[in-house]
Amino acid sequence: MESKCNVVIFESYPLFSSGIKTILNASNSIRVAGEASNIDHLLQLVLKTNPNAIVFDILHCINAGLKPLRKIARKFPHIPILLIVGEEYADCFDSYFQLGVKGFIFKDDTSAELIQAIKEVCSGRDHFRDQVRTFFKESLKRNRRGKTSKQPDQSLSDREISVLKLFCRGLTYKEIGNKLCISPRTVETHKQNILSKLKMKSTVDMVKYAFHHQILN
């Protein structure tokens, strides 16, 4: 009899986590060893259960899930990670690759495709559809052009760049305010100014911008 693949689910919202768990438990080849809604719980859970893979829904994470993903990759580099993503995260794919992610499953994929992806990463293979490879190639081309022709927007002030860096670390308005000795309201004002200057709409866009322009280096 084929042994089951043990996985843990990293999902911020219990409702979505229970849906993923129901799908996986219906498979004869996958067993859900546990669920976590925050990074500390996840790290403890992985230590306790030693899963074959981690299913990580970054759709419900702030800042494209990069901060918790770094922690997982640093502490458990041997455990494959399967990300649940959307096309809007294509600009972050190269960062995900660099952090050792072994597969992507899109939010509009079927239950069967999710199960197949988990089986593949658990067996040591990558799971990247042609669609993902296309996004990755396009992203690399943009990054190569960016390294030679793009520079960080000079209109951002030093304080705005500091705020941007801290948002990339996943800090809250209050935490950023404490570090910079300003109020959360002032942090929010800086964020709105950054979005306006860069002609962007969300924190995820800001994070992508920071990574592409190597502001975090």
Rank of each mutant, 00 (worst) to 15 (best):
T172W: 08
R142A: 11
F10E: 04
R145L: 14
S157G: 14
D57L: 08
L114C: 02
H60Y: 05
V132G: 03
N28Q: 14
A73G: 04
Y89M: 03
T49C: 06
F136K: 08
K4H: 07
Q98C: 05
E120V: 05
H41A: 12
K141M: 03
I84P: 01
R142I: 03
V121N: 08
R31D: 11
L164S: 10
I115P: 12
H190N: 12
K71L: 15
E11R: 05
F211S: 09
S12R: 14
H78L: 08
T22H: 12
V55D: 06
L66F: 06
D109W: 09
Q214D: 14
S183Q: 12
L114F: 06
N50T: 09
I20W: 11
S3T: 12
L198I: 12
I84T: 06
Q192Y: 12
K71C: 04
L140M: 05
L140W: 03
K199N: 15
A117H: 00
A90Y: 08
D158K: 13
S17T: 14
K174S: 03
L43D: 02
V85L: 00
F128D: 00
L180N: 02
R159G: 03
R144K: 07
H41Q: 13
S18A: 13
E2D: 10
R169E: 15
N178D: 15
S162P: 01
H41Y: 06
G19L: 07
E188Y: 14
R129N: 01
N193P: 04
S17N: 10
F10R: 02
L198H: 11
L69S: 07
C5A: 14
G19V: 05
L166Q: 14
T203L: 14
R31V: 06
R70T: 03
Y13D: 09
L15F: 15
Y13R: 13
N28W: 09
F56T: 01
Q44P: 00
F97M: 15
N38Q: 09
L59P: 00
L42A: 04
H41C: 05
I118C: 06
D40E: 11
K107W: 04
P184V: 00
A53Q: 06
Q116C: 10
K141I: 11
Y173E: 08
V204T: 09
S17C: 13
M206W: 13
S196P: 03
P51Q: 02
G86L: 04
N217F: 13
L216A: 07
H41V: 11
I81E: 00
V46G: 08
A64Y: 07
Y89H: 09
D126K: 12
E35K: 11
R145K: 09
T186H: 13
V46W: 03
L216G: 13
E88W: 08
S27F: 09
A64P: 01
V46A: 04
G177W: 00
E188M: 14
A73H: 10
V132D: 11
G170F: 05
K102E: 04
